[in-house]
Design a protein around this nucleic acid. Structure first.
Length: 227
DNA sequence: GCGACAG
DNA sequence: ATCTTGTCGC
Protein backbone atom coordinates (compact mmCIF):
# COMPACT_ATOMS: atom_id res chain seq x y z
CA UNK A 1 0.00 0.00 0.00
CA UNK A 2 1.14 3.58 -0.45
CA UNK A 3 0.09 6.91 0.92
CA UNK A 4 -1.88 9.27 -1.32
CA UNK A 5 -3.36 12.68 -0.75
CA UNK A 6 -7.09 12.55 -0.03
CA UNK A 7 -8.08 13.96 -3.41
CA UNK A 8 -6.02 11.56 -5.52
CA UNK A 9 -8.01 8.78 -7.22
CA UNK A 10 -7.76 5.45 -5.43
CA UNK A 11 -6.05 2.86 -7.65
CA UNK A 12 -8.40 0.08 -8.70
CA UNK A 13 -7.34 -3.11 -6.85
CA UNK A 14 -8.25 -5.31 -9.80
CA UNK A 15 -6.11 -3.21 -12.14
CA UNK A 16 -3.16 -3.28 -9.76
CA UNK A 17 -3.45 -7.05 -9.56
CA UNK A 18 -3.43 -7.35 -13.34
CA UNK A 19 -0.46 -5.02 -13.81
CA UNK A 20 1.46 -6.81 -11.07
CA UNK A 21 0.96 -10.11 -12.85
CA UNK A 22 2.11 -8.59 -16.13
CA UNK A 23 5.33 -7.41 -14.51
CA UNK A 24 5.92 -10.78 -12.87
CA UNK A 25 5.71 -12.44 -16.25
CA UNK A 26 7.89 -9.86 -18.01
CA UNK A 27 10.50 -10.26 -15.30
CA UNK A 28 11.52 -13.63 -16.68
CA UNK A 29 12.50 -12.08 -19.99
CA UNK A 30 14.97 -9.57 -18.57
CA UNK A 31 18.59 -10.18 -19.54
CA UNK A 32 21.38 -8.54 -17.56
CA UNK A 33 24.76 -8.97 -19.20
CA UNK A 34 27.73 -7.12 -20.61
CA UNK A 35 26.46 -5.48 -23.80
CA UNK A 36 28.05 -6.47 -27.09
CA UNK A 37 27.64 -3.05 -28.67
CA UNK A 38 30.19 -0.46 -29.62
CA UNK A 39 28.57 2.59 -27.98
CA UNK A 40 28.39 5.35 -30.56
CA UNK A 41 24.91 6.76 -30.04
CA UNK A 42 23.11 7.10 -26.73
CA UNK A 43 19.54 8.29 -26.21
CA UNK A 44 17.90 9.95 -23.25
CA UNK A 45 14.18 10.20 -22.58
CA UNK A 46 11.82 11.89 -20.18
CA UNK A 47 8.27 13.19 -19.88
CA UNK A 48 6.39 16.20 -18.56
CA UNK A 49 2.69 17.00 -18.43
CA UNK A 50 0.72 19.66 -20.27
CA UNK A 51 -2.24 18.97 -18.01
CA UNK A 52 -3.46 16.06 -15.91
CA UNK A 53 -4.30 13.87 -18.90
CA UNK A 54 -1.81 15.01 -21.51
CA UNK A 55 1.80 13.94 -21.56
CA UNK A 56 4.73 15.38 -23.51
CA UNK A 57 7.37 12.74 -24.20
CA UNK A 58 10.89 13.55 -25.36
CA UNK A 59 13.83 11.61 -26.79
CA UNK A 60 17.24 13.09 -27.47
CA UNK A 61 20.05 11.35 -29.31
CA UNK A 62 23.68 12.11 -28.49
CA UNK A 63 27.01 10.92 -29.80
CA UNK A 64 29.20 8.99 -27.39
CA UNK A 65 31.56 9.78 -25.82
CA UNK A 66 31.52 13.34 -27.22
CA UNK A 67 27.91 13.81 -26.06
CA UNK A 68 26.91 16.13 -28.89
CA UNK A 69 23.21 16.46 -29.59
CA UNK A 70 22.29 15.02 -32.97
CA UNK A 71 18.53 14.57 -32.69
CA UNK A 72 15.57 15.67 -30.59
CA UNK A 73 12.02 14.40 -31.08
CA UNK A 74 8.86 14.81 -29.04
CA UNK A 75 5.26 13.72 -29.05
CA UNK A 76 2.10 14.72 -27.21
CA UNK A 77 -0.50 12.18 -26.23
CA UNK A 78 -3.12 11.22 -23.64
CA UNK A 79 -2.44 9.36 -20.41
CA UNK A 80 -5.06 7.03 -19.02
CA UNK A 81 -3.73 5.53 -15.82
CA UNK A 82 -3.01 7.47 -12.63
CA UNK A 83 0.44 7.49 -11.10
CA UNK A 84 0.91 4.57 -8.72
CA UNK A 85 4.37 3.82 -7.29
CA UNK A 86 5.68 0.69 -8.96
CA UNK A 87 3.52 1.08 -12.06
CA UNK A 88 4.91 4.21 -13.60
CA UNK A 89 5.74 2.48 -16.88
CA UNK A 90 2.12 1.67 -17.70
CA UNK A 91 1.37 5.37 -17.43
CA UNK A 92 4.37 6.81 -19.27
CA UNK A 93 5.85 4.14 -21.54
CA UNK A 94 3.13 4.05 -24.23
CA UNK A 95 3.82 7.60 -25.34
CA UNK A 96 7.56 7.20 -24.98
CA UNK A 97 7.44 4.23 -27.36
CA UNK A 98 5.62 6.35 -29.94
CA UNK A 99 8.21 9.07 -29.55
CA UNK A 100 11.04 6.60 -30.03
CA UNK A 101 9.66 5.76 -33.47
CA UNK A 102 10.21 9.36 -34.53
CA UNK A 103 13.98 9.06 -34.23
CA UNK A 104 15.68 8.99 -37.62
CA UNK A 105 18.63 7.07 -36.19
CA UNK A 106 18.37 4.48 -33.43
CA UNK A 107 20.67 4.51 -30.36
CA UNK A 108 22.87 1.70 -29.08
CA UNK A 109 21.69 2.41 -25.53
CA UNK A 110 18.79 4.29 -23.97
CA UNK A 111 19.08 6.14 -20.66
CA UNK A 112 15.74 6.57 -18.94
CA UNK A 113 14.65 9.04 -16.26
CA UNK A 114 13.52 6.54 -13.61
CA UNK A 115 14.55 3.08 -12.36
CA UNK A 116 15.61 -0.04 -14.21
CA UNK A 117 15.66 -3.24 -12.13
CA UNK A 118 15.74 -1.31 -8.85
CA UNK A 119 12.03 -1.96 -8.56
CA UNK A 120 9.85 -4.28 -6.42
CA UNK A 121 9.56 -6.77 -9.29
CA UNK A 122 12.67 -5.63 -11.16
CA UNK A 123 10.52 -3.91 -13.74
CA UNK A 124 11.08 -0.19 -13.55
CA UNK A 125 10.28 1.92 -16.60
CA UNK A 126 13.77 1.51 -18.06
CA UNK A 127 13.42 -2.27 -17.99
CA UNK A 128 9.89 -2.06 -19.36
CA UNK A 129 11.06 0.01 -22.33
CA UNK A 130 14.02 -2.26 -22.94
CA UNK A 131 11.80 -5.30 -23.18
CA UNK A 132 9.40 -3.62 -25.59
CA UNK A 133 12.15 -2.28 -27.81
CA UNK A 134 14.56 -5.18 -27.35
CA UNK A 135 17.29 -2.61 -26.89
CA UNK A 136 19.83 -2.02 -24.09
CA UNK A 137 18.44 0.38 -21.48
CA UNK A 138 19.46 1.78 -18.11
CA UNK A 139 17.74 3.89 -15.51
CA UNK A 140 18.92 7.00 -13.68
CA UNK A 141 16.51 7.98 -10.92
CA UNK A 142 16.61 10.91 -8.56
CA UNK A 143 14.91 9.12 -5.69
CA UNK A 144 14.92 5.60 -4.29
CA UNK A 145 11.94 3.31 -4.85
CA UNK A 146 13.00 0.19 -2.95
CA UNK A 147 16.13 -1.06 -1.21
CA UNK A 148 18.63 0.05 1.39
CA UNK A 149 21.96 1.82 1.08
CA UNK A 150 24.46 3.90 2.95
CA UNK A 151 25.18 7.44 1.85
CA UNK A 152 28.13 7.46 -0.57
CA UNK A 153 31.14 9.71 0.10
CA UNK A 154 30.59 13.40 -0.80
CA UNK A 155 33.00 13.42 -3.74
CA UNK A 156 31.99 12.94 -7.35
CA UNK A 157 32.46 9.34 -8.39
CA UNK A 158 31.74 7.89 -4.95
CA UNK A 159 29.14 5.14 -4.90
CA UNK A 160 27.46 2.61 -2.65
CA UNK A 161 25.31 -0.37 -3.57
CA UNK A 162 21.53 -0.38 -3.29
CA UNK A 163 20.51 -3.74 -1.82
CA UNK A 164 17.09 -5.34 -1.96
CA UNK A 165 16.21 -8.90 -0.94
CA UNK A 166 19.84 -9.95 -0.96
CA UNK A 167 20.58 -8.51 -4.38
CA UNK A 168 22.45 -5.42 -5.52
CA UNK A 169 19.96 -3.77 -7.83
CA UNK A 170 21.60 -0.39 -8.39
CA UNK A 171 24.45 1.89 -7.44
CA UNK A 172 23.82 5.07 -5.54
CA UNK A 173 26.18 7.30 -7.48
CA UNK A 174 27.50 10.74 -6.57
CA UNK A 175 27.75 12.47 -9.94
CA UNK A 176 28.74 15.83 -8.49
CA UNK A 177 30.58 16.98 -5.36
CA UNK A 178 28.32 17.46 -2.37
CA UNK A 179 25.14 17.01 -4.37
CA UNK A 180 22.49 14.38 -3.73
CA UNK A 181 23.40 11.14 -5.54
CA UNK A 182 21.40 9.43 -8.29
CA UNK A 183 20.30 5.81 -8.50
CA UNK A 184 21.79 3.98 -11.48
CA UNK A 185 20.46 0.59 -12.51
CA UNK A 186 20.52 -1.58 -15.62
CA UNK A 187 17.24 -1.90 -17.45
CA UNK A 188 17.61 -4.68 -20.01
CA UNK A 189 20.47 -6.17 -22.06
CA UNK A 190 22.99 -4.39 -19.82
CA UNK A 191 24.84 -4.96 -16.55
CA UNK A 192 25.19 -2.76 -13.49
CA UNK A 193 28.89 -2.00 -13.96
CA UNK A 194 28.45 -0.79 -17.52
CA UNK A 195 25.43 1.29 -16.55
CA UNK A 196 27.43 2.93 -13.79
CA UNK A 197 30.42 3.60 -16.03
CA UNK A 198 28.23 5.12 -18.73
CA UNK A 199 26.33 7.27 -16.25
CA UNK A 200 29.59 8.74 -14.98
CA UNK A 201 31.02 9.14 -18.47
CA UNK A 202 27.92 11.12 -19.45
CA UNK A 203 28.13 13.46 -16.49
CA UNK A 204 29.64 16.85 -17.27
CA UNK A 205 28.80 19.84 -15.10
CA UNK A 206 25.49 18.71 -13.70
CA UNK A 207 24.02 16.16 -11.34
CA UNK A 208 22.14 14.38 -14.11
CA UNK A 209 24.02 12.72 -16.96
CA UNK A 210 23.59 14.54 -20.28
CA UNK A 211 21.08 12.20 -21.95
CA UNK A 212 18.42 12.47 -19.26
CA UNK A 213 19.38 16.01 -18.34
CA UNK A 214 18.75 17.22 -21.89
CA UNK A 215 15.58 15.17 -22.26
CA UNK A 216 14.36 16.64 -18.98
CA UNK A 217 15.32 20.11 -20.17
CA UNK A 218 13.44 19.86 -23.45
CA UNK A 219 10.45 18.25 -21.76
CA UNK A 220 10.12 21.53 -19.87
CA UNK A 221 11.15 24.01 -22.58
CA UNK A 222 8.97 22.49 -25.32
CA UNK A 223 5.77 22.81 -23.33
CA UNK A 224 4.64 26.13 -24.84
CA UNK A 225 5.26 24.93 -28.39
CA UNK A 226 3.59 21.60 -27.66
CA UNK A 227 0.24 23.12 -26.74
C1' DG B 1 0.52 -2.66 12.99
C1' DC B 2 3.53 1.46 11.27
C1' DG B 3 6.17 3.58 7.50
C1' DA B 4 8.00 3.92 2.53
C1' DC B 5 6.79 4.82 -2.03
C1' DA B 6 10.38 6.37 -9.47
C1' DG B 7 7.61 10.33 -12.18
C1' DA C 1 5.14 15.02 -12.29
C1' DT C 2 3.42 19.89 -10.55
C1' DC C 3 2.67 23.91 -7.46
C1' DT C 4 5.90 27.74 -5.43
C1' DT C 5 9.91 32.32 -2.66
C1' DG C 6 13.68 33.22 -1.36
C1' DT C 7 18.49 31.97 -1.08
C1' DC C 8 23.30 30.11 -1.72
C1' DG C 9 27.34 29.55 -4.66
C1' DC C 10 30.07 29.40 -8.94
Amino acid sequence: MYYRSHNAPAPDPALVRDLTRQQEEMQHQVILQKPDFDLKLIAGCDSSFLDENTILSVFVLLTYPALELVEKVWHVGPVTLPYVPGFLSFREAPNLLKTYELLQQKPDLIMVDGHGISHPRRLGIATHLGLHLQKPTMGVAKKVLVGKYTEPAPEKGALSPLAYKGEIIANVLRTKDKVKPVFVSPGHLLDLDTATTVALACTLKHKLPEPTRLADHYAAVLKPEAR
